[in-house]
Design a protein around this nucleic acid. Structure first.
Length: 262
DNA sequence: AAGGCCTGCAACCGCAGCGTT
DNA sequence: GAACGCTGCGGTTGCAGGCCT
């Protein structure tokens, strides 16, 4: 990205960013804390301004990433190096994707989390353009919320079974439905659905109990004590699925992950 | 209309690991 | 090998906007 591209990029950012509450000056000296070096230096905290974003992006375009503390100083930003790094990686960096998590991404998040736990940066590596922060937020705001609604711990066997036998199969069903309505390759999902014993009857009907499960899943869910599963609105369709991502290889990968979990 | 509550997300904080001196 | 600084990670918090009463 050369200098002119950065400037264009910054202009676009300025036009597109939706700021909450406008510019917010919140230096430490304003916050009432006292005596810290940061306060003496007038280090700013809180939301970034458009001007700061432009300065940071412009500076990185000339000098590159890294050495964040010295970068912050030389750019004239009254921010910590950590703050600059976070802002760049999570927001300003070219290629960052923001917005709705697709069905495929949801499925992969559930699966990778079951494998790696809260290792968000590692999980995020499987999602080009997504940040660990965004995936972490998704997990906490959607999945943890769902666990709370089910009155069980997110790491409990009960909830993990709910993910495996209810949530994930339902996501797969919806991906199938989305795929078949947008592409002419319904056989793409054949191996996955066969291997997970999913029947053809729809789980997208909004049923709230295990009667909507495939027979094998229903049996296992019942055996696990899951009787009153409820679905959140976020289980309703998100934006159009990313068909390019949903390749035969990815399907088989997920299938293998599911098999490894059992 | 207004006030309180809830939700989602950006950003901060503390800590651990690593490299350098 | 101790001290220091930097970086990256995961947990947590603060707040704007939406929703509800």
């Amino acid at each position: 990205m050369d200098h002119h591209q950065v400037l264009d990029y910054c202009n676009n950012m300025n036009n597109n960013i939706k700021y909450r509450g406008g510019e917010m000056e919140r230096s430490l000296s304003d916050s009432g804390s006292s005596g810290s070096e940061e306060e003496m230096m007038g280090i700013r905290k809180g939301p970034w301004t458009e001007e700061e974003d432009a300065i940071l992006a412009n500076h990185i375009s000339f000098h590159g990433e890294g050495h964040w503390n010295s970068l912050a100083r030389s750019a004239g930003l009254k921010r910590t190096g950590k703050s600059c790094r976070l802002r760049w990686l999570n927001y300003l960096r070219p290629g960052v994707r923001r917005g709705n998590i697709t069905l495929q991404e949801q499925l992969l998040i559930l699966n990778l989390h079951s494998r790696w736990g809260n290792r968000w940066s590692k999980i995020a590596q499987e999602f080009p353009g997504r940040t660990d922060n965004e995936i972490k937020n998704y997990w906490r705001t959607r999945v943890v919320k769902q666990a709370k609604q089910m009155k069980c711990d997110v790491n409990s066997k009960e909830f993990r079974d709910a993910l495996r036998f209810v949530w994930i199969p339902r996501l797969v069903e919806r991906i199938q439905a989305s795929s078949s309505s947008h592409t002419a390759s319904p056989t793409s999902f054949h191996c996955y659905t066969d291997a997970t014993s999913l029947s053809d009857h729809s789980m997208a009907s909004g049923d709230n109990d295990t009667s909507s499960l495939p027979p094998s899943a229903e049996k296992q869910a019942t055996a696990s004590g899951i009787h009153h599963l409820e679905y959140s609105p976020e289980l309703q369709p998100f934006e159009e699925a990313n068909a390019d991502f949903w390749t035969y290889e990815n399907i088989c990968f997920l299938q293998q992950q599911l098999a490894d979990d059992s």
